[in-house]
Every structure is written in structure tokens, then in C-alpha cells.
Nucleic acid binder design. Sequence first.
DNA 1: CAAGATAAGTGTAAAGTATACACCAAAACA
DNA 2: TGTTTTGGTGTATACTTTACACTTATCTTG
Lengths: 228, 228
Amino acid sequence: MYDHTDKERLLLAVDCIIFGFDGEKLKILLIKRGFEPERGKWSLVGGFLHKSEVLHDAATRILNRYTGLDDIYMEQVGTFSDIDRDPEERTVSTAYYALINIKNHSQKLNRQFSAQWFSVEEAPPLIFDHDKMVRHALKRLRTKAETEPIGFELLPEKFTMRQLQNLYEAIWNVSLDKRNFISKVRSLDILEKLDEKDKTSSRKGSFLYRFDAEKYKTVERNRSSLNL
Amino acid sequence: MYDHTDKERLLLAVDCIIFGFDGEKLKILLIKRGFEPERGKWSLVGGFLHKSEVLHDAATRILNRYTGLDDIYMEQVGTFSDIDRDPEERTVSTAYYALINIKNHSQKLNRQFSAQWFSVEEAPPLIFDHDKMVRHALKRLRTKAETEPIGFELLPEKFTMRQLQNLYEAIWNVSLDKRNFISKVRSLDILEKLDEKDKTSSRKGSFLYRFDAEKYKTVERNRSSLNL
DNA sequence: CAAGATAAGTGTAAAGTATACACCAAAACA
DNA sequence: TGTTTTGGTGTATACTTTACACTTATCTTG
């Protein structure tokens, strides 16, 4: 029997850990709060769940508001319910992490919200339980990246092998061997090699690749792990 | 800026997917509701989050209520927010899965709540979005079991290799080779072999083992995967 | 225009891990 | 005593992961 004594109506917030990649480091987007409580401190972007809105849609709305982007890759991390996590009123918050291509996102909105990218290790302390949310999100991202090709969400459509390797090195905070990395990626058979070269990082130029979602679908059932 | 328009105070429920193992199949504990809404239908056990209670404690309270057990292994699965998931009032629910030793749990309580164990494949349709919760929980259990020694939570303290193998076969719905399974488990070096034998399943009797949490801690950092 | 600098691109051998596979041992029971 | 049942064990092969170093292309600079 559901126990109806002492049950409480409360606010449900949604907070988003927005990950980006600048070619070197894994970053998160934080805002300097221009509003109470905790004005002037750094926090994740967030908002409240509306009536007639599911959590997934609320997260989408919040992400759009702060980045200007649609169709963002997103995954629910968990729900955080410490009693005094919000000093104003009992509020429980569901965290989502999102992966975006850092280049696609609006400078204008960054100014508007005093938003700024921080590398994951060098981020300032955050309000409430947001640090805990980031830790959980990072853990989930790392696990997910082991079995699903989600890294591409963080890269431009066309990218070099070096960029891809840098990305996974940043996600897992490891260093990988270039030859092993490339041969492993090749064996997955989920990339299309383009004729174009990227000339920005070397005189010789390096070939660009594109993630091929169709190829991925066809090899998916054989695949056990990305294991890069 | 947090957007305060249209935000809503709502009920937060907790629903628990209680897994057990009877030696053959992976089971879940369901109750036949003796109360509205959906009286007479099968559902997960659940309840509402109280004031001054965090989700983890609510799940613990609910699990204790329905099983009589303390110290239950538990993990948050996710939060489900479909608008009309509960027809009475806007209610969002956080699901937890729990692993218990099916033997330890009270027949009396089962009668009291019309609770019954069902094998995961043969469970009846559940109310609300509980089927979805079960699917998610099962997925999480399967993933978690690949890297963490959580299977032992489902077994008695002392168990045979055969029981352990049956368990993992049930969790992943696969069949495993006995010799490979045993040598893999041995190589993990996290079990203590006892001198006792279990005589119930054969004339010869088979040795009992016990999970050794201390050993596990010491080998933990070298371990990449259970990969049974 | 030659030499140097920089990043791209490539293959192989060894170690480790996973898989496939079959027979003997012990004990109860007929 | 032999038949039945379940427990217990090892090895060879395939596959995967890891470690490791030199050449190529192109631009820059002297």
C-alpha cells in the first residue's frame, strides 16, 4: 500500500552538465549566477520542470536556452535529493549530461548568461550539489564512451584521427598509442575517410574522417566494445 | 536564470525493482495491489518520498517494509516523468533496483502484501510505467554485473560454483562453459573456498565458496572486468 | 634551394585473454 | 557391483591487446 502520510509536494529541477571538447581538453559549460540564491557563484545550467512537461523535454528546453542548439545528445545521470541542497525550498534535481560541439555554440548566449567553458579538472567549486552531479556525469560519460560511439557528438562533423584520439585521451584521462588507436578505430569500420585534408595542424595535412551512422548500425550487433 | 513561470510542485514516488534468484531464474518481486488506483493489478513496490527524507532512505524504507530486510544492495536506475504515469496527480518516480537473497525474505510479508516472485520473462503486465522501469533496471543490472561483483548479493553467503554460474547465466540470459567459467572466477581471486560441501544437488556433493570482500578490495585496482 | 623542423602515416612480434572441447571421480542407489 | 548423476579438471587454438620506430610530406628558414 502506498503510504500517504508525510508525503510532500516538492519542486523538481533539472540541471545539465554540458560537455564540450576544444581539441585538447574535456570542458564543461558553467554559468556565473546573476540571480539568487548564490548570486555570483558558478553553477550548472538548470531550471524547473514545468507542468505538462517530461524531464527529457525540460532538459532539452534548458539546453536550447543556454546553447541555442537543438538535437543535442543527452542522457539522464540521476536524481539528487539532499534535503537542503537548495536552501530556498525542498527541491530535488535530476541531472542530465549533454554532449555538444563546442564550436557550434553561441558566443552571444555565453555573454548573456555569463557562461564560460572550464576544463573538467580546473572548474571552480560549484553551488549546491553540482560538483557531485559533475562527478557522476563524468563517470557515466566514461562508461558510455566505452561501448557507444558518442564521442563524435563532441567533434565537428569532419575530424582528424588525431582529434579523435585526443578526445578519447581527454575523456578517459589516459594516453593512447597512435598506431594502436588508429588500427582499432579502423577495425570498428564506422568511419568514412574523406578525400579532404585538414591543414591547420601540420604542413603535411591530415585526412578528415566522418562518423558513418549507417555503417555503425550494420556492424552494431557484432560489436562488443569500442575499447579504444 | 532559473525560470519560475509554470513550475510545479509535484509528488515524488520511489519504486523498487527487487531482484532475487531461486537457483534457476532471475526473479522480481511484485505485489498485487490491494488499493486504488489500479487495485488488483500487479505492480512494483513503492511509496512516496517523505519530507526530510532523501531518495536513498526512502528506497531503504520501502524495501524494509516489503521484505523485512536491512542492508540491501541498491542502485538508482532513473527517474520517470511521463505526464499521466499516475492518473491521480502529477507524480514523478525514481526507480531503484535492489538485490536480495530470496531465501532471507519473509513469507509473512508476502502474504500480507499479496507479493509474489515472478521470473523476469514471465512477469505479468504491470501498472503505469513499471514495465519500463523493469526493463531499465534489468539493463543496468546486466551492465553493472559485468564490472562489479554484485551477483553475490543474490546468493546465500555460501554457494556452489554451479549456483554462481546459473546466476550469471540467468542475469545475462546466456549459457556459459563450466570449465571456462570456473577458471575465470578463480583467476579473479575474490572467492574463499570452504571445506564444506553442499549435498543437496548431488550424491558427490560440491564445495561451497564464499565471496571475500577483503580480497576483492585488494585486487580491485588491477581488475578491468569480471567478464565471466 | 638545401637543410631542418613538424606532424602524419604505417606494420609486426609478443603477451595476454577468450574460447572450444571431453574425460574421470565420487557417491548413492538399484 | 554396475549404473546413474553431478562435480571437477587441462590444454590447444584463435583472437585481442600491447609495445614499439621509422619514413613521408610539406613548410620554413638560412
